[in-house]
Structure formats: structure tokens, C-alpha cells
């Protein structure tokens, strides 16, 4: 790996399109990234930038049709899981990858007690007996900070608050001790004080369990607080990627730079006027032959219209290695 890490997941050149009546939606284009053991990769981008579709594609969770994973490799546990049978893939999903979604109510089954929902994968994928699974379920609820865990096993999802449900989801995702935990906007629907509880929990869990995590969010603040590396997506592509400190201290892509400037600050000098990113996000109805950000970019020039930029390493001697950007324009670093 470029940063010398030990990758548990390696995604190369992923491309996913949706066939719709209006034409093809190029939702994800040549997306590549890896995830090292024990690290947390943050994925940021606005809605529609391709974050969820990327993660759903790599684990075969998109309905096809309309979705089609048209190109790419996804290496997990020594295999390209885009090439394995549906049955094997289901096994991988259950045992190697845990998922947490934004809205726990869509993934928790409202008619089953949460204890059952935690125990079920343990029995199915880990071969535990019912008693063992029950014991493990209590441990898991305890681990994610649900008070009085053993008596909560018999509760139904609606009997938990939003924050507690998200804890239950995390417990389920962790049940089979996955290599990779993918959390897709898990705190977006929660209030900030509850979000703070969940972020604290994740920090604790990382210390205890050391698993690798992909954390999707549109909140740059959340990323700054928990990520080791960050990947910025725009228009279905990775426009910038790097170690969290490098990316925040020296953002290279005009989109990343604009994004960091457009959010008002909570501390420090108060901006008299907010910086605006003019225009609208792209609709992605064509295979992109130009830079997707070009129409909104203050630095765009002819080449940006003619050629979709590839990711290139950022030459930055003062900071950590592994920073790259997909942009023809060279940012001047102070």
C-alpha cells in the first residue's frame, strides 16, 4: 500500500451506473481506495456524490436492475468479492463486514425483539448455540453502552430512543467480529449531544476492538474528530484523499477548499459573510469526460473541460505521505 499499511479492504476502479428511463446515471466512477487494519477512513461529500452507492456496490447490496457494477475489483480476505458467487458474498456480508445505516428503523425489523436480531447472525454465521448467542448478545449490548442489557434483549426497536437504536445497530454490526465496519451517516439523524455519545462510543470501541471502519458523513466536523484518513467525493468520484491532518491543513482540490470555507465557524473570528460555492451539483447523466466540479470551480481552465483529471500524488514534504488530488490546477501551498 502507498502508505505502508496493512490493507483489509482494497477497492480498485469501481464504476456503478443506474439504468433509468431517463438514461444512465453514472453514480460512481473509477473509485479506488483501501482500508488498513485498525484505521478509520472518513468519506465526505454532499448528498448524491456517490458515497452510499460506492459502499453498497462493493458489498453487493444494490438491486440489479437498475444498478450495474460495471467495473472494478474489491479485495477482501484474499478474494475479489465482485467475482464470487451470491452465496459466498452473503457469507462475507454476514461474517466479515458490518453495516450501520443512517436510519436504524429501516434496518432493524420492527416486529422482532432486538435480542433475537443480535443473536440470529451469531447462530447463523458463527455457529453459536442459542445460549451462547444470548450471552454474547448481552455482552454486545453492554459493550455499546445500553444500560441493563440483559433485560433489554426482549425489547422491540420502537421501545428504544433514536440514539439507543443506533447503539443496537452497532451491536448487531459488531456481532460477528467483522474485519470491516461500514457506517453510512450513522449520526446524521441524531441530535448533537446524542451524536457526541455515539462518537465517544466509537472511539472506545476502536481502542477495545481495533477494527477497521469506513465512516460516511457530510459533516466535516465529525470527520475531523474521528478519521485517520479522509476521502472527499464529488460527482461520483474521489476528488481528494489524504491523512486527516494533511487534508484539513492543506486542502488541494478547489472543492475541498471551498467546502471548508463555506461552513461557518463555531469558534474564532466570525465571518462577516459566508463564502459561497456557486451553482449546483452535477446530474451525472453522462460518462464524465470532464472534471465534474469544473462548472462550479473558480480555477477551471480549458483542460478541465476536456479531460477528467486522474488522481495524482500531492508533493508535500512537510506533511504525512499519501495525500492525492484529482485536479489539473496546482494549488499554491503557503
Amino acid at each position: 500500500m502507498p502508505d505502508g499499511g496493512d490493507a483489509v479492504l482494497d477497492v480498485r476502479g469501481l464504476k456503478t451506473v443506474f439504468r433509468t428511463r431517463g438514461g444512465e446515471v453514472h453514480a460512481v466512477n473509477r473509485v479506488s481506495f483501501h482500508l488498513n487494519r485498525g484505521e478509520l477512513l472518513g468519506v465526505v461529500g454532499e448528498s448524491g456524490s456517490g458515497k452510499s452507492v460506492t459502499m453498497m456496490s462493493l458489498i453487493g447490496l444494490l438491486p440489479s436492475p437498475p444498478a450495474e457494477v460495471r467495473a472494478g475489483e474489491v479485495w477482501l480476505g484474499g478474494r475479489d468479492i465482485l467475482k464470487i458467487s451470491a452465496r459466498d458474498l452473503r457469507e462475507v456480508r454476514g461474517a466479515k463486514v458490518g453495516f450501520v445505516f443512517q436510519d436504524p428503523m429501516t434496518s432493524l425489523n420492527p416486529v422482532f425483539q432486538v435480542g433475537f436480531q443480535i443473536m440470529e447472525p451469531l447462530i447463523r454465521h458463527m455457529g453459536l448455540s442459542k445460549d451462547q448467542a444470548r450471552k454474547r448478545a448481552v455482552e454486545l449490548l453492554d459493550l455499546v453502552g445500553i444500560p441493563d442489557a440483559s433485560s433489554r434483549l426482549d425489547s422491540y426497536p420502537h421501545q428504544f430512543s433514536g440514539g439507543m437504536r443506533q447503539r443496537v445497530m452497532i451491536a448487531i454490526a459488531l456481532a460477528c467480529d467483522p474485519d470491516v465496519l461500514i457506517a453510512d451517516e450513522p449520526t446524521t439523524a441524531l441530535d448533537v449531544t446524542i451524536q457526541a455519545q455515539i462518537l465517544e462510543l466509537v472511539k472506545e470501541l476502536r481502542q477495545k476492538l481495533g477494527m477497521a471502519i469506513i465512516w460516511i458523513t457530510h459533516d466535516l466536523g465529525v470527520i475531523a474528530g474521528i478519521a485517520d484518513r479522509v476521502m472527499v467525493m464529488y460527482g461520483g468520484q474521489v476528488v481528494e484523499h489524504g491523512p486527516v491532518k494533511a487534508l484539513f491543513a492543506r486542502p488541494q482540490h478547489p472543492y475541498t477548499r471551498a467546502l471548508l470555507k463555506t461552513v461557518p465557524s463555531l469558534t474564532g473570528a466570525r465571518e462577516a459573510r459566508l463564502q459561497v460555492i456557486e451553482g449546483q451539483p452535477p446530474i451525472m447523466m453522462e460518462d464524465p469526460t470532464s472534471c465534474p466540479f469544473a462548472p462550479r470551480c473558480a480555477h477551471a481552465f480549458l483542460r478541465c473541460e476536456e479531460e477528467n483529471p486522474l488522481r495524482r500524488a500531492v508533493d508535500d514534504k512537510t506533511l504525512l505521505k499519501g495525500h492525492d488530488v484529482a485536479c489539473h490546477w496546482e494549488a499554491v501551498n503557503g
Binding site: V192, T193, A196, Q197, G221, A224, F248, V263
Partner: peptide, 21 residues
């Protein structure tokens, strides 16, 4: 409430004392 709001600054985030309710 204010202490719970994450800030887009890894250095500040790393050193912040958060009140977890």
C-alpha cells in the same frame, strides 16, 4: 450543547474537552 458540536479542525478536535451528557 455547544461542546458537542464537532468542529472541522483535527487539531482542535483532538484537544477538546467534551461534555458527554
Amino acid at each position: 450543547l455547544l461542546s458537542a458540536v464537532p468542529e472541522p479542525d483535527p487539531d482542535r478536535e483532538g484537544s477538546r474537552q467534551r461534555i458527554i451528557l
